[in-house]
Each structure stands twice: as C-alpha cells, then as structure tokens.
Computed example of a mutant assay.
Amino acid sequence: MKLICPLCSLPLATAEQGVMCEQGHRFDRARQGYLNLLPVQHKKSKDPGDNAEMVEARRRFLGAGYYAPLAERLAGLAHERDPACWVDIGCGEGFYTARLAEALPHRDGYALDISREAVRRACRQAPQLTWMVASMARIPLPPASCQLLTSVFSPIDWAEALRLLAPGGGILRLGPAREHLIELRQRLYDEVRDYDEAKHLQSLPAELGLAQSESLSFRLNLTSREARSDLLSMTPHGWRVNAERRERVLAEPLEVTVAVRYDWITRT
C-alpha cells in the first residue's frame, strides 16, 4: 500500500483498525474493508455523493447485465495497457471496477468514490483492491504513481489526474456519445439537446492529449417497469424531471440506444 494522507500528503502506514501518518492524522477502516479517507473539512455535505436509493438502482440495473458490453470493452482496453498500478476514479457501486480487477489480476488496484453508500457495496465485489471513500480532487496516492486511471460516466479533475500519472501512463475515459439514451431524453424533455461528446477535451491541460478514441453502441429493450425506473434513477435525468414526465417513461416498454465513446488520453 502506498497511500498518502489527504491532509498533509505524508505516507500512510497501517495502524490499528485503519491507517495513520507521522503527523498523527488517523483514518478508519470500515468493517466492510474500505478506508474512509475523506476528512470532514473536505466534505461539502454530511453524506456527499449518491445516496443509498441511487446506488441500489444502479446495482440492480448493472447487475442485470444491461451494460455488460460497456464493461467488457473497458476491461479489454485496460488489459491492453497492462498497468503496474491503476485507479478507478468515481467507482460507484463497483460494477466496472470488478471487471477491471478481473482483467488485471496481478496488478496494484485502487478504487474510490465520494459516496460512502457506493463504496460500502462496491468493496464486496473485489476485496483484493484498496477501496476508499475519497475526493476525486485529492486522491490519496503519491505523484507519478499510476500508469492507468479509469473514469466511467464520472467527472475528472485533470490537474489531479496529471499529478498521479507516471511517464507513459494515461486516462481511460468512458463517457456518453451523442445518441446515448436519446429515446429516454425524448420522452422526458420537449427539446432534446445533443451531447457534445468531445466537450471534456476542451479543458485538457497542455500536458495531456487524446491518443485514441473509439465508439460502441447497441439497443436495449426495457420491458420491465423496474428496469426503466432504475435506469432513470441512475442518471441525472431522474432528479431533473417532474412526476408526470417520470411516469411517461415508466408506463410502457421503452427501447433505448446505448452509445458511448472510449478515450485514451496520455501525457504529451
């Protein structure tokens, strides 16, 4: 373990029921196995991130295999890179992280999310990894310590990513393409805005550049009300729409387009 203190950046060493640095900053390990490395002063709310209801919706939907092709391709791309150390940023309930762990069985793996509810569930899927409740803006790992950072439908702090990347390393990002869930959005909104699927590249630091990109798309037929409800709950659309528009989605079967892109972003 090569964790650093999120308060003073000194190395963390194993201590009774947790970890501690030389300055005496101590962080607990939960009984489920994860480390809580999110100090109170770094929180913007009492329980930041996704709540239990949102996490459970995502767990059910992903566990049913609807997005399995996304995870399989992500794991394949990660395996091609074969990093000595990798980190899944914004790991959520751990569906994609567990597939990454299977693809990289002998590598040093870390996963973090700001949501305690998500990490509590995620750490059961791959206990061999180091799981953390931590801020994406203050990842408790040393500079230049990682060859691969992964981000799935999650924001990236580019400056922090650049700090973590070792020479030759890169960021594997999975994000929505232009047609992603277009049918769902058409049911929810009077005017549907196109995704700008390359918008994230506009804010890249000069030291990072897009080295490779590819797309994946397929159709899903959501015949059960629970599946439609879970999909809605795990997207930002779930808390943006009123009850009437929500019921419009839940009332009858829905066929949706899943369209994503994978970007491999490296140090230039």
Rank of each mutant, 00 (worst) to 15 (best):
R124D: 07
K44F: 10
Y66K: 06
D82P: 09
Q147S: 08
G209Q: 11
P83W: 04
Y66L: 08
P253R: 07
D263T: 03
W239I: 10
R178F: 01
W264A: 09
R138Y: 01
S229T: 07
A259L: 05
M1N: 10
T97L: 09
L3H: 09
H25W: 08
A103R: 01
A259T: 10
H79W: 02
G65P: 08
S115G: 12
R31L: 14
R245K: 14
L216K: 07
P83N: 01
P155G: 10
R120P: 06
R225F: 05
R267M: 06
H106G: 07
A243L: 04
C21R: 00
I4G: 03
E160F: 11
A144Y: 09
L165G: 12
D108I: 13
A198S: 11
E183L: 08
I4F: 03
L250A: 12
Q186C: 15
A259Y: 09
A71F: 15
M20G: 00
E244G: 07
W131R: 06
L104D: 14
T257E: 04
C146T: 13
Y96I: 04
A122D: 11
V192K: 08
D263M: 00
K43L: 03
G92D: 10
D88G: 13
A84L: 07
C91Q: 10
P39W: 05
C123H: 12
H237F: 11
Q128W: 00
C5K: 00
A227R: 05
Y262R: 12
P127V: 06
S154G: 01
E117H: 14
T268D: 00
Y66T: 01
E117W: 08
L222N: 03
A75D: 04
A68K: 14
L112C: 02
E197I: 00
E207K: 14
P69A: 08
P176R: 09
C8E: 02
G170Y: 08
H237V: 02
N36H: 14
E191R: 05
T14E: 15
D113I: 12
N51V: 00
T257P: 13
R245Q: 12
L254T: 04
P6F: 09
Y67T: 00
R138I: 07
G18K: 04
S154H: 02
A84Q: 07
A161F: 03
G109F: 09
L112R: 04
D190I: 06
L164A: 08
R267D: 00
L204K: 05
L3G: 13
R60G: 06
L204Q: 00
A101D: 05
V152M: 10
L254K: 08
T266W: 01
N221G: 06
E53M: 05
S151F: 10
S203N: 13
G63S: 12
P155M: 06
L181K: 15
I89V: 15
L100G: 13
E214S: 15
S217N: 01
